[in-house]
Simulated scan of single mutants.
Amino acid sequence: MNLIIKLLCGIFVGILMGMFAPEVMVQALITAKYLVSQLIKFTIPLLILFYVTSGIASLPKNSGKLLSKTVGLAYISTLGAGILAFMVAKSLFPALLSGAGQLPEAETVLSPFLELQIPPIMNIMTALTVAFIFGLGISNTGAENLKKISDQGRDIIELFLNKVMIPALPFYIAGVFADMTVKGTVFATLQTFSLVLLAVVAMHWFWLSFQFVTTGVALQRSPLKILRTMLPAYFTAVGTMSSAATVPVTLQQTKRNGVSNSIANFVVPLCANIHMSGSVISIASVAVAVIIMTGAGQVPSLLEALPFLAMLGITMVAAPGAPGGAVMASAGLLGSMLGFTEEMIALQIVLHLAQDSFGTACNVTGDGVIALLIDKVSDSVEESGGELVPAEEIA
Rank of each mutant, 00 (worst) to 15 (best):
L7F: 08
L7E: 11
A21Y: 10
P22E: 09
P22N: 08
V26I: 14
T31Q: 06
L39E: 02
I40G: 01
I40S: 02
T43K: 06
L46K: 10
Y75V: 04
I76K: 04
G82P: 05
L92A: 09
G99L: 09
A100S: 12
P112A: 12
F113Q: 03
P119F: 14
M122N: 14
I124T: 15
T129C: 10
F132H: 15
L136P: 00
N140H: 14
N145E: 10
L146M: 15
L146T: 12
K148I: 02
Q152W: 08
G153P: 11
D155F: 06
D155N: 15
I156W: 09
I157A: 03
I157G: 00
E158H: 05
A168Q: 10
D179E: 14
V200T: 15
V201T: 15
T214K: 00
G216D: 05
F235D: 03
G239P: 03
T246G: 02
Q252C: 07
T254Q: 01
I281H: 08
S285D: 04
G297D: 13
L306S: 02
G313K: 09
I314D: 00
T315S: 13
M316W: 07
G325P: 07
G325T: 02
I345L: 14
A346H: 12
L347C: 06
G366M: 01
I370V: 15
I370E: 11
I370C: 08
I370R: 09
L373M: 11
K376W: 14
S380P: 05
